[in-house]
């Protein structure tokens, strides 16, 4: 088994394949259907024994760095509309890269306006594994 991070962005990633309005411009039924899809997806992962973690991030925040002794850290943010922002992630523990990609594909099919899949890009990243005990 190997762990993969399925990373969801607010913005960023390759060029979008489907353009859609922000969620507050959908109908309430479309919003509900989308949220239900996400809950069902996570529930299926738990059932299949592949779920590790799921967290969502609020859009606020900033970049921060050290600015020398005795000085407060420098911040850059909150971010302009154009910057890539991470919206949240899901960590899965699966048999293979192919399975991780399959799951990301399912998640990307979350419904949007008119119930049509959003085709949203998800970033899939492998975690470093553990060093094996037996090496020869």
């Amino acid at each position: 088994m190997a762990k993969y991070l399925l990373l969801k962005h607010y913005r960023g990633g390759p060029a979008p394949t489907v353009e859609y309005p922000p969620m507050e411009e959908w109908t309430p039924a479309e919003v509900d259907a989308h949220l239900q899809f996400m809950r069902d997806f996570m529930a299926r992962l738990e059932e299949s024994g592949e779920f590790v973690d799921e967290q969502a991030l609020a859009p606020g925040g900033a970049f921060v760095r050290y600015d020398g002794a005795g000085r407060p850290p420098v911040t850059d943010g909150p971010f302009a509309e154009t910057k890539d922002l991470i919206a949240g992630w899901c960590v899965v523990d699966v048999e293979s890269w192919d399975r991780a990609v399959e799951l990301a594909g399912e998640l990307s099919a979350a419904p949007g306006p008119g119930g049509r899949p959003l085709h949203e890009w998800l970033e899939v990243r492998p975690f470093w594994g553990v060093a094996p005990t037996v090496t020869e």
């Binding site: 922000p22 507050e24 919003v31 609020a58 606020g60």
Partner: peptide, 25 residues
């Protein structure tokens, strides 16, 4: 919609997004 963006938890964010969606519809 503005309130949804600054909500402190997902349940509230979803609720406020839905309210905005209801009015926009």
């Amino acid at each position: 919609a503005e309130a949804a963006a600054s909500a402190s938890n997902l349940a509230e964010r979803d609720h406020l997004t839905r309210q905005a969606a209801r009015l926009n519809t």
